[in-house]
Design a protein around this nucleic acid. Structure first.
Lengths: 347, 347
DNA sequence: ACCGCGGGTGTGACCGGTCACCTCCATGCG
DNA sequence: CGCATGGAGGTGACCGGTCACACCCGCGGT
């Protein structure tokens, strides 16, 4: 009725300008809260905005400004609890800052594929959060071209990151240290370790934390067992360890691994925590409800995601001073899978 | 050396054109594989593309074409296994089609918040996949403005969806039917049900499937117990059911719920499957490794995600005929939590 | 009365692509 | 030989915003 000649599709600032009887630039000023617009004019423009249901196109904004209010999270798996939590943290912070978040899954760790994925993510503009706990993620982080804002979510690094390529991490060295000490304090001679893939690096923070605890206690240092990411890998590793009667305490790189280990111990007839104690990392939601419930170290993945976004936000805009690391410290959660070692010579 | 005056930042088609000694339009033609470009010219352009590291800007493309090769997944939780798998399926299919995928988390089911989230997602253009298993998702699906391409991921609907607003689903009616029949066939008198929030609707497909199985077997029909989404809710529901000695079989709306129920039964001293049988939905990765391992119905969430994308892709472009539902049928996976009912009158 | 100044607006170019349309030239055919 | 045809390529406008700049006007100072 009152709308006569405006174009099909969503209204643009030109449409709004026409409706309000001003120039498109004035509309732009109103949208951006520029001070020098007369109140009466502002009112008219806002009324037109309301009436036409105008929404400023994110695409056009990105093109004109050169950056895109978008962060893309590159991850090897959306399904894994830790990764999914990081994604949630990023999304949460991004939403609060009116950013959009994209996801790219690194299907394989193959160099070319990863590089292609990084390029794709770069095409949309904005920043990148790379979850670099695993080989695919590490590759991706390396493949990010210079000049593209990126934050890596990594294990506790040995040396601080370069300024132009910040990292974010939880103190998993400390986490491993505490979990190991907890198990030792119960009376176990040593603590075996089932590793997630990233822990194969000799510099792995978790391995270092465990080593420190073992060293301080003058305990033997059995080499880590490779477990992969999921329960299946933990199960396989668990079967190996279950066969060795000297094994009484097992620390696992994550809760899923621990679950597999628990199953393997069960099948091998080694009661938990009667004979063997088990602890995990992450405190996934189901860990508290397992039978027996899982002793684990809670890691603040959501906070990690938020921190990653904050850093990126700081790099993309000249606001929000780069908040260092408002990530909660790891917290040991003692549950039923850890206890004093029982007599193992009996069976 | 050879590059003299081209602009800072990523190269544009104008830069490439200058380097190759052609017009920007020719570059555009080469990029888009337009036939009428002489091979020699094409070669020159491609060489320039290579040399300058040209990548076509997704933003500019979106602006010029009017649509943005992006799909945004709206979900209430990135952490939940089923949701995360759907996201992965969407991402997988999207990547194959050179689309980007965004995520929006519906933090609350509050109408205004959800509407705002939908608008935000709409701002980036492209299509929407809304995971509408829960109240927040259902609200979001309703709040999507007409004209915006959207696909809902829903429970088996009572009536087929409208053409312009397609849905995608697994046959969870059949899934519930099969799981219930399985439990009945073991000799249980009836099957109790711990529901996920969406199942409160009287028209819920899962509830209908279970009802049908119970009806066919002339079994009593105890009302569903509300469980929520996570293990905590399952635990609470499980405690209630555990107190009733007549309860010998419990079907749960998802594996996390089942986990909580198992824990509650354990604490109540009711052995599984000795006294009570339990089954879940989803077949989450850890379910096979629980002790006892969980009988469940595997649902093809990833396929669901891929199907959702395919539908959206069909709506966004005039290609890829709308493949109806290449989603795998639910598959009953019988494990250790289900067995014949034992003597319950003893304790 | 003249100038400078600053608030309130409008105009043109630009971001990096695409699309519609035009030109130029080498053919083929009547 | 003249002309329609189609391949190869170029030009201008446009998508929906932003930015740099010019304009107009009222005001205060001299």
């Amino acid at each position: 009725m009152e709308v006569t000649g405006h174009t099909r599709g969503p209204a643009s600032i030109r449409d709004v300008a026409a409706a309000a009887g001003v120039s498109y630039q004035t509309v732009s000023r109103v949208i951006n809260a520029h001070p020098s617009v007369r109140p009466a004019t502002r009112e008219r423009v806002l009324a037109a905005v309301e009436e036409l249901g105008f929404r400023r196109s994110a695409t056009a904004l990105a093109l004109a400004r050169g950056r895109s209010r978008t962060v893309t999270v590159l991850t090897a798996d959306t399904t894994h609890y830790g990764y999914a939590s990081i994604l949630r943290g990023v999304e949460e912070a991004a939403r609060a800052a009116a950013y959009s978040v994209g996801v790219g899954v690194l299907e394989s760790a193959d160099e070319a594929t990863v590089a292609a994925e990084v390029r794709r993510a770069a095409d949309v503009g904005g920043g990148l959060v790379v979850i670099a706990y695993d080989p695919a993620g590490v590759r991706a982080l390396e493949a990010v071209p210079a000049g593209l804002p990126v934050v890596g979510v990594v294990e506790t690094p040995a040396s601080p990151p370069a300024d132009d390529r910040p990292w974010v991490w939880t103190d998993d060295r400390e986490a491993a240290y505490r979990a190991t000490r907890h198990l030792l304090s119960l009376g176990h001679e040593t603590v075996h370790y089932v590793a997630i893939p990233s822990d194969t690096r000799p510099a792995s923070a978790r391995i270092a934390g465990r080593r420190q605890a073992l060293t301080e206690a003058d305990a033997p240092q059995p080499p880590p067992v490779q477990g992969g990411w999921g329960p299946a890998g933990g199960y396989a590793a668990g079967l190996k360890l279950a066969g060795d009667p000297s094994v009484t305490a097992i620390l696992c790189g994550n809760d899923d691994l621990a679950l597999g280990v628990l199953r393997a111990l069960h099948e091998a007839g080694r009661p938990v925590p009667g004979e063997v104690s088990v602890a995990g990392f992450d405190d996934a939601p189901h860990s508290a409800y397992l039978t027996p419930s899982l002793t684990t170290v809670r890691l603040d993945f959501t906070g990690l995601g938020r921190a990653a976004f904050a850093l990126l936000h700081g790099a993309l805009e000249e606001s929000a001073p780069i908040t260092p690391h408002p990530v909660s410290a790891p917290e040991l959660v003692v549950r039923e899978t850890s206890g004093r070692p029982g007599p193992t010579d009996g069976g």
